[in-house]
Amino acid sequence: MSIFDLGERFLEFLTKVDIGDFQLIEGSPDVDKYDIAIVEGTPITKENKKRLKEVRKKSKILVAIGACACLGGVQEIKDYRGDKKQLIRQIYPNIRGIDNPNIKAVKEIVKVDLEIPGCPINKEEFFRLINQVLEGKIPEIPQNPVCVECPRRNKNCLILLGKPCLGPISLAGCGAPCPASGFLCDGCRGSRKGINLEAMKNALKMKARLSEEEIKNLLERFGKLNELYANKN
């Protein structure tokens, strides 16, 4: 949806590229090769996974966009709960034929050349980066914390006010809209490299008075908890 909401710029973008498969606006049959494949969402069904592998084979460059594709997304919470088998039975009387795998990000299934994270993605960032890809580059998102962008739109640091916020460990690039609206940064873009996870947990415990359970719930919201541990100094 964010891409669509580039509005006039999206229309202009359409004049620069040949669309192979964008089911939202056209139903043409699939093509043999893609220069760029843009993938959103988490592959859950067997069909999803099969199609993802096919698309990877046919594509020179594969770009994963959004928290679901990059991290796993909120649906990954079911894996951290550890009771997905009970959950599915509680929701569906007939579970046969409903895939209930452990949630994987796109890069855990195929090679990904560029990730544009966020829930939702920042359409300005998307537009900027995808145009660089069209020019033949593979851009890198600077590994800054959200804190770098936050003061531009928000006068008061949430943590200093004793409120929870994952800004220090989260990847900047969104423009920090959440603290600007009085909402915490909940890490929807995933963590940046070189984080001090223990310090973050301490700040949440000591300053924001969160319990262990609340800290766990916050960190696991968008998935890929193990990356948090891998991104440490």
Binding site: V74, I91, Y92
Partner: peptide, 8 residues
């Protein structure tokens, strides 16, 4: 795919 929101 089912994301099981009512469960999570």
């Amino acid at each position: 795919g089912a994301r099981l929101f009512e469960g999570i």
